[in-house]
Amino acid sequence: MQPDQFNKQLKLLRNGLCLFVIALMSLGGFVVLYTFYPESSLFTVKEANQKQFETSDSLSVPLVNSQEGEYDLETGFIEDVGMSAVVNNCTNCHSARLVTQNRMSREAWKATIKWMQETQNLWDLGEKEPIILDYLAKNYAPESKGRRQNLTIDKWYVLEQ
């Protein structure tokens, strides 16, 4: 009985200590990161990225295609099934912006992947390929623009004459 109880208490103590160490390490990590890198997006990400969306004129993350869609603040990708597979496989060489500014059919996205595999050192996407293609074809599908679109004016201004 007694050794059992002792073991149980030891286990509890060990677990507690373990949790404490993890908590301490996380805190320590935070402090280290904050000391060396106070402007890290981990600390400022909310304001910084929201600002990015508002000033779409200079750093434009395209806000298109999905009215109620939510955007991943880190990458600007539309949040949907398959997004993490896209982030993991499609942002290692180039940034998300090269994806989010394009609009293609599923076939054209597939051809683009094939081109990158043949010429740009992209790896075999394996079972993730259909997930990635579904995501891209749904969220970054072409919209018909006609032969010439109306002009859009961000802001009318009175010209000094």
Binding site: E39, L73, V87
Partner: peptide, 13 residues
């Protein structure tokens, strides 16, 4: 905001 930063990915900033 409860989001996982994918392995190997460093945020743009």
């Amino acid at each position: 905001y409860g989001k996982v930063i994918p392995v190997g990915y460093t945020p743009i900033a």
